[in-house]
Design a protein around this nucleic acid. Structure first.
Length: 327
DNA sequence: AAGACATACAACCGCCAAAGA
DNA sequence: CTCTTTGGCGGTTGTATGTCT
């Protein structure tokens, strides 16, 4: 039982950076075969390369493939990566299918070297996409912390819960919040790659079209506080992640500091201001982790799989959508 | 100028699942 | 069914380059 040792372990097989000659040999070999590799394992021998077949495949797919786009990631690409990562996790290959010309390796590297650090600076856990605890002692930038909660889908749920509890239990509103949670849950737990993307698109479209799900439940000043969060699942959301938007966050933070903590130094006011935002969003209850809201909603009602959203014979989701439009 | 440290990215490693014998 | 082979994936490492002191 088991696997045969990979050829990479063979003595004499070259490792390390590829030379131009090796690149040329690999490209010419694949081009001679009309772009079809056949067996990667047999490729090194056939092409005269003293490399492991696995190494050849990686070199081709991550670097030599003609349709690879080089250069810096755009803001749009960055936003897309973050939003896809929020629902897919570290499914880099799946994420890569949504970015033309980008490889999973490139996206993974970009995440680890750029986006991950940026999220940490903003007080967002890059793994869970949830707000880090206020006493987090990592690379946490308190000045951006107040906006981080509003960046997240969970923040929408929390806002919906707060509004619901504040205005009395409303089964319709609760169901909408539950639906929102179900959407996120279904997207996150669905193992089918193709449907995952479809589900994400469906969720985006749904939230984009039905601006009433959460916003209609909130007071205007709460809406202002949550405006960035409302954008989270909309096309073109996550503007706060880009560098220009980070400035907006800082400006917003400064406004909060000056209005909520007059006479307070910016250094001393940073943390309390962050707490103030949370309190404004959830006036009915003290700060509680979002997970408690998730528990409050459960057990969830049985709902059909989101993948059926586009099927013409399934009216369930259409009805839900229409209801949500009316709210 | 030089060493230390940080950053970016290519490449490697080990595991897993699918497919075929 | 079991076993083997293979490709693919995600995590990690190695190295070149840039920046700081």
């Amino acid at each position: 039982m088991g696997r045969s040792p990979c050829c990479c372990h063979d003595a004499g097989v070259k490792k390390g950076p590829w030379t131009e000659e090796e690149d040329r040999a690999l490209v010419e070999h694949i081009q001679r075969r009309g772009g079809h590799v056949g067996s990667w394992r047999g490729l090194p021998k056939a092409s005269g390369l003293n490399r492991c077949g696995k190494s050849c495949r990686l070199r081709w797919t991550n670097y030599l493939r003609p349709d690879i786009k080089r250069g810096n990631f755009t803001d749009d690409e960055e936003r897309l990566i973050i939003s896809l990562h929020a629902v897919l996790g570290n499914k880099w290959s799946t994420i890569a299918t949504q970015l033309d010309g980008r490889t999973d390796n490139e996206i993974k590297n970009y995440w680890n070297t750029h986006i991950r650090k940026k999220l940490l600076r903003m007080g967002v856990d890059p793994v869970t996409h949830q707000q880090l605890p206020p006493d987090y002692h990592g690379q946490f930038d308190a000045a951006s912390a107040s906006a981080s909660a509003a960046l997240l889908p969970e923040a929408l749920l929390w806002a919906a819960a707060a509004a619901t509890l504040g205005g009395g239990l409303d089964t319709g509103a609760l169901m909408q919040a539950q639906l929102l949670q179900q959407l996120l849950h279904a997207i996150g737990s669905n193992n089918d790659t193709t449907n995952l993307i479809a589900n994400l698109a469906a969720a985006n479209a749904m939230l984009n079209s039905s601006s009433g799900i959460v916003p209609s439940l909130l007071l205007q000043d709460q809406m202002n506080m949550l405006s960035t969060g409302v954008n989270y699942l909309k096309p073109g959301y996550l503007y706060n992640i880009s560098s220009s938007a980070e400035q907006d966050v800082v400006q917003q933070q400064q406004l909060i500091n000056t209005t909520a903590c007059p006479g307070t130094s910016s250094a001393a006011g940073a943390e309390p201001a962050a707490a103030l935002v949370s309190r404004d969003v959830s006036p009915a209850v003290d700060q509680k982790p979002v997970v408690e809201f998730a528990g409050f909603l459960e057990p969830m009602m049985e709902m059909p799989n989101l993948c059926s959203l586009e099927s013409s014979d399934d009216s369930f989701w259409k009805d839900i959508l229409e209801d949500s439009y009316r709210l």
